[in-house]
């Protein structure tokens, strides 16, 4: 661990306040998502733990607030904080899984496109262009309304939207890598195309993927939140952060602002933290931007 702590990367990190702030935010959220059930008093989806008497309690520091419910409760007496903690787990799961799926598909297509070029490349990249000319929300919305909702469908929709970024990034790096002589050396050594792609190209195009993946998780969480807010996202039984905002939104104008405001703020800080950290990674790992 010591060589890492004394590395230039670690040194730059310590001097970069936004990066430290961003990763601190992320660390807090990660802890919440992992340890969630241990941190809050209530399981918001266990009906037996809910007290209807406690519905619409304002946050604890306001008049009428209840010490047990730090951020207040919703219409069924659910603790908003507990809902956020449980919702964050769902949002994070969706964001990370969609990232992994689109990374796999996009990277594969990008590698093929960049390595073989020609018609393979033309076809893949034109599909990507078409994809990019629609707003990603629109594609997701269309898919969700056509094929139904549910977590699996959300994941498919997000992957359909997200692969393009990976494919383009990987294709770009692949194009520049295969110009280099070590690829030609591998060919002279007698390696097959597949061996060259897996052993040589893939390891050398990974770095920008880390950056893209970080930013993509944030984007996916946002899109998922928007889908759920529009009612085509996750089912009510597995409420993500976006769904919490939507639920709260229904009563927002009757003065009960906390049920939607806190999950909303939470999403904001989460994505903010991800992006701060992602920007730092991009600056550090992408020598072209230095």
């Amino acid at each position: 661990m010591t060589p890492f702590l004394s590395s230039e990367f670690a040194f730059n990190y310590r001097r970069n306040l936004p990066a430290v702030l961003g990763s601190a935010l992320l660390a807090v959220f990660a802890l919440m998502a992992v340890l969630g059930p241990l941190l809050v008093l209530q399981d918001p989806y266990d009906v037996s733990q809910l007290e209807l008497m406690d519905s619409f309690k304002p946050p604890a520091w306001l008049e009428g607030g209840d010490g047990r419910y730090l951020l207040g409760t919703d219409g069924q007496g659910r603790d908003v904080l507990a809902s956020i903690v449980y919702g964050a787990r769902i949002s994070a799961f969706i964001g990370l899984t969609a990232m992994a799926l689109s990374c796999m598909i996009g990277t594969t297509l990008g590698l093929l496109s960049g390595y073989y070029g020609g018609t393979v490349d033309s076809v893949i990249m034109r599909v990507a262009d078409i994809q990019l000319s629609f707003p990603s929300m629109l594609i997701a919305l269309f898919m969700m309304s056509a094929f139904g909702t549910g977590i699996v469908m959300v994941l498919i929709a997000l992957t359909a939207v997200g692969w393009v970024v990976y494919a383009r990034t990987v294709r770009g790096s692949t194009l520049s890598e295969i110009q280099k002589e070590y690829i030609q050396a591998a060919r002279v050594a007698g390696l097959s195309d597949l061996q060259i792609i897996v052993r040589h190209v893939l390891p050398n195009v990974m770095t920008p993927l880390i950056v893209v993946s970080t930013i993509q998780v944030g984007t996916f969480i946002l899109i998922e939140a928007s889908l759920s807010f529009l009612g085509v996202g996750v089912p009510i039984t597995e409420p993500s952060l976006g769904l919490l905002v939507k639920e709260g939104f229904d009563v927002l104008f009757s003065g009960i602002w906390w049920t939607s405001a806190f999950p909303g703020l939470f999403i904001m800080f989460l994505v903010f933290g991800i992006n701060l950290f992602g920007d730092f990674l991009r600056d550090e790992l992408n020598p072209r931007l230095r």
């Binding site: 280099k180 002589e181 070590y182 390696l191 040589h200 390891p203």
Partner: peptide, 28 residues
């Protein structure tokens, strides 16, 4: 038939250890 390349920087895969680089044609 083997080949030696021009650019000593670009002709070796930066992610491979030297022993793996050297033995790659033999292993193939």
């Amino acid at each position: 038939l083997q080949m030696i390349f021009q650019d000593p920087y670009a002709s070796l895969d930066p992610r491979q250890r030297v022993k793996d680089i050297v033995i790659e044609p033999r292993r193939a």
